[in-house]
């Protein structure tokens, strides 16, 4: 199964990270990534640049609106992710616990869906055929 580890940082985490030399952060992250690569579980991972370079597309009105984002009110920012392939939820949790993150940081761990999560095509065709039949019978009643 695949899991996505989503890094979320609060203001507290951002402040704390500013006290640590950048090289030290890079090294810790590098070692963590390497350990997952060598264990054969790391499929992908990326870090995200500062939120000020990003924007938000808001769908709450009829027309989708591009805004600078409600970053001012947001308590936690999504700033990177890893995708792991592991045998169990527990293994995903164990890898997540090893991330070199500090106070104020959160890792949200979510299972990534695969083809097995969706029914086979023919099954839907069958289902749809069943619904059509049902509707046709209702029409006759």
């Amino acid at each position: 199964m695949k899991y996505m580890l989503i890094m979320r940082a609060t203001d507290e985490a951002v402040e704390a990270s500013q006290e640590v030399p950048f090289e030290q952060i890079i090294e810790a992250m590098g070692k963590y990534n390497e350990s997952m690569m060598k264990a054969g579980v790391l499929l992908a991972g990326e870090g995200l640049s500062d939120a000020s370079e990003g924007f938000v597309v808001d769908f709450s009105t009829d027309e989708a609106l591009v805004t600078d984002g409600p970053y001012g009110e947001t308590k936690e920012l999504f700033n990177g992710f890893w995708i792991l392939e592991v045998a169990s939820r527990d293994e995903a949790a164990e890898w997540a616990k090893r991330a070199p993150l500090g106070r104020g940081s959160f890792l949200e761990v979510r299972r990534v869906t695969g083809p097995e999560d969706f029914p086979a095509d023919n099954e839907w065709i069958e289902k749809e055929a069943g619904w059509r039949e049902e509707q046709a019978q209702r029409g006759q009643d």
Partner: peptide, 10 residues
Amino acid sequence: ERAVAAAWRI
């Protein structure tokens, strides 16, 4: 125990 098993696997 499940955490032990996961750590052991790793």
